[in-house]
Amino acid sequence: MKQMTITPAAAPDPRKENPAMEQAFIQARGADVFYGDKQALFGIDLDIEEKRVTSLIGPSGCGKSTFLRAINRMNDLIPICRFDGSLTIDGQEVYDPAVDVVALRAQVGMVFQKPNPFPKSIFENVAYGLKIHGMTPSKSEMADRVEWSLKSAGLWDEVADRLDQPGNSLSGGQQQRLCIARTVAVAPKVILMDEPCSALDPIATAKVEDLIDSLREHYTIVIVTHSMQQAARISQRTAFFHLGKLIEVGNTKDIFTNPREEQTQNYITGRIG
């Protein structure tokens, strides 16, 4: 099976010298998704820029989660689901039959709506991802990697003295940050988030949002959210989906202050569209 090999993020970025060279890190062209006979996405053309947070917004059933799950082929887990079109990450076709989907999902991590820690210790929750992806460094290297991941997720100071305790003994917000630590441990290039704060209180939400803001320095983040305010707070780009179509994508400040499309305006202002 073909491995996804994505250019290391630390490489010099020629786009800064020459904006004309700019090419989207994630690029969808004519992306259709079907659940059996029912079409869920219609010809999505969307560019997602590297090391930025892109929010996908839209009413329930609009296709935003379907699109998110298409990026790391999570939809493959649904037998009746079919993808047509093109979706590339760093120029490589995600739906190339030769792509190793397990390797793809290591490069494109995912955080879900409800925190889903494994029934293991805090330490093992983070180390587990490294093990299943065959990244098994020495014991001391593993400890360093777990510490780094927990620090990256802003959780280290809260759990450093109880790494052997069950992951599900943490609060909801801490569990979600543990899941983020587990995701970043395997050094992905992209992190997909499907309503990661919908089950959290405002304080835990603020901590996760602050974390997302710091993570974008190293990762390309795509987040589905139903909170307009959250999309406005944390993302630099916002895409509005409606009835399976991409209606508008643009800079977040433009989408939330002066959107081009009436459908976008009606949705973000809670109007009858």
Partner: peptide
């Protein structure tokens, strides 16, 4: 852009 009514009529 013509403003359509809000879902929350109290807002209007």
């Amino acid at each position: 852009m013509q403003a359509t009514p809000h879902i929350m009529s109290r807002y209007d």
